[in-house]
């Protein structure tokens, strides 16, 4: 029995990490006008954020086609997969999961779907955990249960240099009404129930980062910590340093926000998060 894991490019896993864990990453697309580029394939984060300031029109994003998922699933079946667990970014933010479902129609092996209700490494960390469970011999149901449980325990906070991109992308749910447009106020956002919700506003980026850290440090006990950045490696390094101080026992994962999430957050986006430790609701099968 071989259970394989599929996710999408918004998980912000590096190619090496995905390869190591045997995870297939299906890319979303970023569109500059009518030019469509596959996230992480045709355009890297580095290239994207270099290009973004020079664009007059806002790039947009597109979910992978059902066909792209079908091809990915079929390739895994050819390699011997007997079941597939497909974990994706919040279905409340993107139709990616729906595309994946359509792509799985008529396949010869079962595909289980998990809505992470997360984005970026909030998705990526759960995918890694699912992959470890699969490598440890868990059934597809167990793997899906592990992933679902990790996502339940995942808390992601984000701050931005500017609200412009998130506003234009229309992906913020609550809290917009008090963020304003006249002053460049830094929002503090949380991924809640799969939606991007504003939960605070702060005048300066530095204080906003402190706020993310405070919110993370209020969550105990901790299994993993993680942080991502778009264009500010110094800020990531600072968070890394502080996170290791806050939760020295917890492995820390860092990553770079890819083009698709970058379209919605813009340059200067920084995220930090925590996966709290397994609790009484966690499934019995957990990889160690």
């Amino acid at each position: 029995m071989t259970v394989r894991i599929v996710t999408d490019s918004t998980s912000d896993l590096t190619a090496e990490r995905a390869r190591e864990l045997g995870v297939t990453v299906v890319p979303l697309s970023v569109l500059f006008g009518e030019e469509a580029l596959l996230d992480g394939v045709d355009i890297t984060a580095e290239q994207f954020f270099r290009r973004l300031p020079r664009e007059t029109a806002m790039p947009t994003t597109a979910q992978p086609s059902a066909g792209a998922f079908k091809m990915a699933y079929e390739a895994l079946i050819t390699e011997g997969a007997t079941a597939i667990v497909s974990c994706h970014l919040s279905a409340a933010l993107s139709g990616t999961l729906e595309s994946a479902r359509q792509g799985a129609e008529g396949l010869s092996v079962p595909v289980l779907f998990v809505d992470s209700k997360q984005v970026s490494l909030g998705l990526g960390v759960g995918v890694m955990e699912a992959a470890r469970a699969a490598q440890a011999g868990a059934t597809a149901e167990q793997v899906a249960a592990v992933a679902t449980d990790v996502f339940r325990r995942t808390h992601s906070y984000i701050t931005l240099d500017t609200l412009e991109y998130l506003r234009r992308g229309g992906r913020m749910s609550r809290g917009r009404e008090v963020l304003g447009t006249l002053l460049n106020v830094k929002p503090v956002l949380e991924i809640k129930d799969g939606l991007v919700e504003a939960i605070g506003k702060i005048r300066t980026k530095q204080k906003a980062i402190e706020d993310l850290l405070n919110r993370c440090s209020a969550l105990r006990p901790v299994q993993y910590t993680f942080a991502v950045h778009a264009t500010t490696p110094d800020e990531l390094a600072y968070i890394d340093d502080r996170m290791r101080g806050l939760a020295p026992e917890a492995p820390f994962y860092s990553g770079r926000i890819g083009p698709v999430i970058g379209v919605h957050g813009g340059p200067g986006t920084v995220g930090a998060g925590v996966v709290t430790a397994p609790d009484e609701h966690s499934p019995a099968f957990l990889p160690t």
Binding site: G33, E34, A57, M58, R167, R168, T181, L182
Partner: peptide, 23 residues
């Protein structure tokens, strides 16, 4: 820009404009 981008620009600005209405 072509039709798609032109319409997209209208949509983006429409929502931005909605956000400005309270001002």
């Amino acid at each position: 820009h072509g039709i798609r981008s032109v319409f997209e620009a209208a949509v983006i600005e429409a929502f931005a404009s909605v956000e400005r209405t309270p001002a």
